[in-house]
Design a protein around this nucleic acid. Structure first.
Lengths: 221, 221, 221, 221
DNA sequence: AATGAATGAGGCTTCATTCAT
DNA sequence: GATGAATGAAGCCTCATTCAT
């Protein structure tokens, strides 16, 4: 996603290197190992081994280990947030559909970027304070809250809907996916995404309105 | 909770001592620091400092750092599971109420034991493989799945309810609480617990049946 | 000299260890190697080897390499300054004698503490800025300047004496000793000290007054 | 000064180039950084940054870092020694005047070449042993000693003058200048040079002969 | 129970140097 | 002449753990 290459030294970054592929490769490898072992339990040796260089050579690409984590995490966060906003802002669609769409979209994005998302969601606290401040992670919640708050006028929504708690519940259910989803499992990403969206909107019980509410394109389950 | 004292070295002759307060104190301190900084970023020095002994002296209480994590995590897991089962098994109550009750109970338990739960949920992977195997963490999911599976006969439940995905959604929404709940926030534990239970059962939309479904004691919102 | 022992961690220093000799030994060894190879060219490995421990074990005694340099240098500086002031302030002696005495005393002190003085004089700039600020190295010059300034009333002194340049000349000639003095050389410390004092006060040329000026106890040359 | 260009690799065929300006520039930059941070604390990266090339490219100019230090230091040493000898040997002038002149000349040279001199005086020990042997640094002392020894016949000189200690005192006072002189200070190079020469010859005290002794051109103080 | 010293392994990072392009 | 990637060695520092007292 992000292929702006940073020079390891100083701010006077040489604009572009010819083989940015190598940088992407490093990010991918790092993300994979961070996701598997955890940031703190990953050594630069681990990464260097897989990258095929000596560990000191990594410093041609990175400024520090913390910085590497930041780069891994920054790209998924940015794109993920854009993804979320795209679904939330879609101006022509019904507000309930947008809530459903945001939920679905978030789950799908998360699964498509499972490795990097895992790192983002699990290792965010390990970033330096400065790097944490540089990342708008609170925006995830805000986007959802705003969407739900904007929907409260809609009479189809329960009157006692709490945008904040709802946002947190949705984020919990969806983010948690990184803890259990494994490719090749019995449920496809789309099944999961749809099911979560339905559950959020309709709950577990049978309702008269349910049929209507689920009249959304591309539903699978 | 669990205050069976283990002997630090060798498996023989656990010296059951009466000053178990010191052992509990160590567990509490460790949990707090693990929760704040993460297991890998916590040093035994950190813990020893707060416990008021020198680093080496900790080995009068623990066998290893990994072991300490295990002890911290074991007690919340055991008690948490018992709590979950108590709510799930309550034989005299309606199955829908039990689903609601499990959800509520889990949230409340989690918040009441926020520190240790945080460690359990965030650092489980850092345990040695052996210790991971010793802990029945999958049971959480199983308890929920079984409860929902058992309720599928009930005609009030949507026919397409997926016990596994539902369990995972509920666990996600509730477990995630450790990531954002802070004492003194604007919502009380009970508000949160009730809201999550209602959301799961009823979804976001207004329904005719809603009035019935919410006939649960102590609802707040 | 300084045997206040610092604990490597935090400010809550355990007051005194029973074997402070080991700490002094470390300071001596460090000073010797710093003097021989230079601070930057000395590795903690070098020091640990001679101290007889693994390099990581040094951190039971020091907080950092920079800190070690500071400790080495702090004691000679403090004592050296006190030495200088003792000679400069001696209230009952003639001002000219005091100038001579300061010069002699400084040379003798420097030779007696050749190793540590070498480190102080050669490696001061390598200290962290904070540590540099903590050391009153400018005081050396000030003590001398003040002494000479105070002597300007005395009619025996040339009218055009410049306290600042004189202080710098004296400090240069004397401090430089660390660059060439080696024990067992052809001149004794006392000879050197006396000669430098005489040269400063009397210059190279024969003078009528010279005989008087050299009427100082313990002259050797 | 010395701008014989050496070939970077192998001793064969030094390619005398006409764009020696670049080589001089490199020497100047290196000297400046060596003087500021110390040889060991200077990285080739530091130098390359200021020189405007990448680190590796420096090896088109130098054989090694040690070699670079050698080149920086060699030129000031050679020229400085020639300067010293010129003042010492001036055949038509009085021997006392020559002593004064050598002192003055050395101070002035040192200040005029402050940066490179600093490196020479402070970093000489960091040179490889071979390079140290290649540089006739002991000659400084020898020139002075010889001059004073040659003057001992002169009845104006004190009978107990010690050529070696005197040479070392003079070199100390003058060389030390690199430790405190900063352009734009309150004393001009000439003032300093004259003052030091006078102090050496005449000392601090008032003497009858003083008037004669100071009959030297361009005296300032 | 506790101390204080030490170990041993390893972690992150730096840096002079090389080399194919 | 210059680049950019890499090497290899080493440097400082950390930390779980051990052990004699």
């Amino acid at each position: 996603m992000v292929n702006r290459r940073r020079s390891p030294r100083g701010d006077a970054a040489p604009p572009f290197r010819n083989d940015d592929g190598r940088w992407q490769e490093l990010l991918d490898i790092s993300a994979r190992i961070f996701a598997r072992k955890g940031y703190r339990s990953t050594t630069l040796q681990d990464i260097a081994d897989e990258f095929g260089v000596l560990k000191g050579s990594l410093y041609h690409y990175i400024r520090s280990k913390d910085d590497l984590l930041y780069e891994v995490v920054k790209s998924v966060l940015d794109t993920g947030l854009r993804n979320l906003r795209d679904h939330a802002d879609s101006p022509d669609s019904d507000v309930i559909d947008r809530i459903r769409s945001v939920t679905r979209g978030h789950v799908l994005y998360l699964i498509e970027n499972l490795v990097a998302t895992t790192v983002l969601l699990h290792e965010f606290d390990q970033l330096s304070e400065q790097h944490q401040r540089d990342l708008p992670i609170r925006e995830y919640q805000t986007v959802l809250e705003d969407l739900i708050t904007g929907a409260k006028d809609d009479s189809r929504l329960r009157a006692d809907v709490d945008p904040q708690l709802t946002a947190l519940a949705v984020l919990g259910a969806t983010n948690w996916v990184y803890r259990w989803y494994r490719p090749g499992g019995s449920r496809s990403p789309e099944q999961i995404a749809d099911y979560f969206a339905d559950l959020l909107v309709g709950g577990l019980l049978v309702h008269a309105e349910h049929a209507t509410a689920t009249a959304v394109p591309s539903r699978t389950s």
